[in-house]
Every structure is written in C-alpha cells, then in structure tokens.
C-alpha cells in the first residue's frame, strides 16, 4: 500500500515538474531560479521534454505538408537525424560545465542538462501545432509558418541563455561571453574526437597491415 502511495506520489511529483516547464517558459528568470534552487524541476521531466523534441523532429519529417518541408527519404538516417540534436546537446552540456566550473559557475552537470532541456520546451510546444497548421495553409501563406517556426527556435535560445544566468549565478555579460566560449569548447571537442578516432583507425590499420605482411611471409 505504501509502495503504491509512494509510486502515486512520485508520479504526481513528476507531473508537477513537467507542468512547471510551462511556468518556466513564461517566467524564465524566476522559473529557472526555482527550478534548481527550490527543486521544482526533475530529470525525468527534462528527459520527457527532450524526448518530445526528438519526437516532433521526426514527426515533422513525415507529417509536415510538402509545401514547407520536402524530405529526400533516400538520404535520411533516423539515428543520425536524432544524433543531430543529441550530439550537440551533449557537447553543449559537457563544454558548458567544463568551462563554468573553472569560472565560479554554480551549476552542476545535472542542473545544466535539466535547465537546457527545460529551455527546449517551446520547440515541441510550437512545432506540434505547426505540423497541423502546415496542412491547412498554401504556399502564399508560407510567411506565417516561417515566422512561427523561427519564434520557436529564438524563444528556446533565449530561454537557455536565461537558464545559464540563473544556474551559474552569472551576470548577463558573463553569460554571453561563456556561451560563445562554450561554442569554441564544442569545436575543440569535435576536433579532438575526430583526431582521436582518425589516430585510432590509423593505428588499427597499421597493425592489420603488419599482421597481413607476416601472414604473407609465413
């Protein structure tokens, strides 16, 4: 019985934290402060928002009217397509955390991830109705679609900025600086990863060719 109650309570808490995303997007400064400091958010809700974002990205491909989005299905790899969101997100969280810990940032990696995901909320929130909307408008009314789509992205970007201000307890100037710096950190990480994997593959190729040579001579 207590287990059931706990479970139910946990679920209610989860719903509460998910619903809190709607408060965050309209009251970013207040919202992101309470998100971590008052424990009003949860990783589960953050995961849900990220999942919805990925879902809407895929649903967009299939259900948006071809007037606005033409999909060359032969060139689409769903996993790579999802990675185009997840990979930059992972780089962003790690890069941002790595930099801000060195410069008095108060946020932990978990908090950065959670706040960034909460910041993504406007994307699924606007893009889902936009999929339906795209099917009732014509090419002449494309501007509405474009503007709404742009709003969802700009809103999310501004929210993530606000989140960084509150989580790290930074000034606006410092946040902007570290956002740009995080961009460079992401590039450095990509560079190192590429270097790493090309080295590894060359190393492997070297040993394979030695092995082959030995086999030929034997």
């Amino acid at each position: 019985m207590t287990a059931f109650l706990n479970k139910k309570e946990g679920f209610t808490h989860y719903l509460g934290t998910l619903k809190y995303a709607l408060y965050v997007i309209t009251h970013p400064f207040d919202g992101f402060w309470d998100l971590t400091h008052e424990k009003r958010g949860s990783i589960a809700a953050a995961n849900t928002i990220l999942f919805l974002t990925l879902l809407v990205r895929i649903m967009k491909l299939q259900f948006t009217s071809f007037v606005f989005l033409q999909v060359y299905w032969e060139g689409i790899n769903i996993l790579l397509y999802l990675a185009s969101v997840l990979f930059p997100l992972a780089l962003w969280c790690v890069g941002n955390w790595g930099l801000t810990t060195l410069f008095d940032g108060k946020g932990t990696l978990k908090q950065i991830y959670m706040a960034t995901c909460y910041g993504l909320t406007p994307y699924p929130l606007i893009q889902f109705p936009l999929i339906l909307f795209s099917n009732v408008v014509t090419y002449d009314e494309a501007e509405f679609y474009g503007v709404l789509s742009a709003i969802s992205l700009i809103w999310a970007a501004l929210l993530i900025l606000a989140a960084m201000i509150q989580i790290h307890e930074y000034t606006v100037k410092k946040t902007l600086f570290f956002t740009v710096a995080t961009g460079f950190a992401m590039l450095v990480m990509i560079f190192i990863l590429l270097l790493f994997f090309s080295m590894i593959s060359q190393g492997i190729a070297y040993f394979i060719s030695i092995g082959r040579e030995i086999l030929f001579r034997m």
């Binding site: 071809f66 033409q70 014509t138 002449d140």
Partner: peptide, 18 residues
C-alpha cells in the same frame, strides 16, 4: 502535384479545395 513536388501548383489547387 504532390507526387511530383510541385508545391506552387499544389497550393493553387489546395486554395480552391479549401
């Protein structure tokens, strides 16, 4: 029009259909 991605003509037809 949809089969061959002609969205301009599609929009013309869709406008009337709507």
């Amino acid at each position: 029009f949809e089969l061959k991605w002609d969205y301009k003509n599609y929009s013309k037809a869709f406008k009337q259909y709507r």
